Computed example of a mutant assay.
Amino acid sequence: MTDAQRTTPDILCIGSVLWDIIGRAPNHMRVGADVPGRITRLPGGVAMNIAMTLRRFGMHPALLTAIGKDEEGRELLAACARMGMITKHVYLSEDLPTDCYMAVEGGNGLVAAIADAHSLEAAGDKILSPLSDGRLGTAQAPYDGIVALDGNLTESLLTQITHSPLFARADLRVAPASPGKAERLMPFLEGGRATLYVNLEEAGLMCQREFSSARDGAAALIARGARRVLVTDGGKSAAFADDVLIFDEQPPPVLVTRITGAGDTFMAAHIVAEAGGADPKDALSAALQAAAAYVSGEVP
């Protein structure tokens, strides 16, 4: 069976699939700056960015998301299919527009961003129907593979997922969509059922304190009830922790050419490494290498 014919996923990516509209300029920017640069529109969203990296490493993700039946949605669905995503489980809405994300990046990193994921939030648990109606599982025979989940879902739906029998056997991997949505992941501290991928700011928001290192943030999240965590701190360090291990590692030094999608690339590469049998230290190293290649522009 060719990749184009494949319809059985080896991982589910649940969350935002939308259009990324990114403006990039090579020089440092401040609020109010008006500079020349490049503007691109590409498929994006946390779930989509993770899925794209998974495909690059040979996995076959299925998307569970909401996409509008508008022109933007038809284009986006076609683009996802061309990239090898399994799209037959996507919830297609007659009345909700396709979501989008807009960001401005300068030589000094991300300047500002706005995420419009209101349609995904409005669709709610409709996007999870394939997990209960027999297409991917049922409450009696739940899906037992890897699930990459993002924090663009509402807090009530994320809370529902932590207790739902539909996810009782799943290997849950969860990331916030942004620091502003980090606190939506609090139910996963109480449930202790997932691997969390957060940056240092997000770890601080979840623990309601500031941390000086990724390692400190990871230790605090485990103390708060998390099962497994990975905490990144840009180019400084990244840490892994569970109830037995805790360690950190420095990422490779690279020239940063882009920011948006780096955390999603890190998460996807870590999932691929562990799915391939890598131990925790090797999996962290592989994720850091992949993220470094992404932000340097080495990966198209």
Rank of each mutant, 00 (worst) to 15 (best):
L110I: 07
A112M: 14
A113M: 05
I114A: 14
I114E: 13
I114L: 14
A115V: 01
A117D: 09
A117Y: 01
H118S: 14
H118Q: 10
K126L: 14
K126Q: 13
I127W: 07
I127D: 03
L128S: 12
L128G: 07
S129D: 12
P130R: 08
P130Y: 12
P130M: 10
R135C: 03
R135A: 14
L136A: 06
T138Q: 10
Q140R: 09
Y143M: 08
D144A: 15
I146S: 13
V147P: 06
V147T: 02
A148W: 01
A148T: 04
A148H: 04
A148E: 03
D150I: 00
G151M: 02
N152V: 06
L153C: 03
L153V: 02
T154P: 00
T154I: 05
T154E: 01
E155W: 01
E155S: 12
S156H: 09
S156Q: 13
S156I: 14
L157Y: 01
T159N: 14
T159M: 07
Q160P: 00
Q160L: 08
I161Y: 11
I161T: 03
T162Q: 10
T162W: 07
T162P: 15
H163F: 04
S164A: 13
S164T: 06
L166H: 01
A168P: 00
R169N: 15
L172G: 02
L172N: 00
R173I: 04
V174T: 03
V174M: 06
A175Y: 00
P176M: 02
P176E: 07
A177N: 01
G180L: 08
K181Q: 08
A182F: 01
R184G: 01
R184N: 07
L185T: 06
L185F: 04
L185N: 03
P187D: 11
G191P: 11
G191E: 01
A194T: 03
A194S: 11
A194M: 03
Y197G: 05
Y197V: 06
V198P: 06
V198L: 09
L200T: 05
L200Q: 15
G204I: 07
G204T: 05
L205D: 00
M206L: 15
C207N: 03
Q208Y: 04
E210M: 08
S212Q: 14
S212P: 00
S213V: 11
A214P: 02
A214Q: 06
G217Q: 09
G217F: 08
A218W: 08
A219N: 13
A219R: 15
A220W: 04
L221P: 11
I222G: 01
R224L: 15
G225C: 05
G225N: 06
G225P: 08
A226C: 06
R227P: 00
V229L: 09
V229D: 09
D233L: 02
G234M: 12
G235W: 00
G235M: 10
G235S: 13
K236V: 15
K236H: 15
K236C: 09
F240L: 06
F240K: 11
A241Q: 06
A241F: 09
I246L: 10
F247S: 11
F247A: 11
D248R: 12
E249W: 04
Q250H: 14
P251D: 10
P252S: 04
P252A: 03
P252Y: 02
P253F: 02
P253S: 11
P253V: 12
V256A: 13
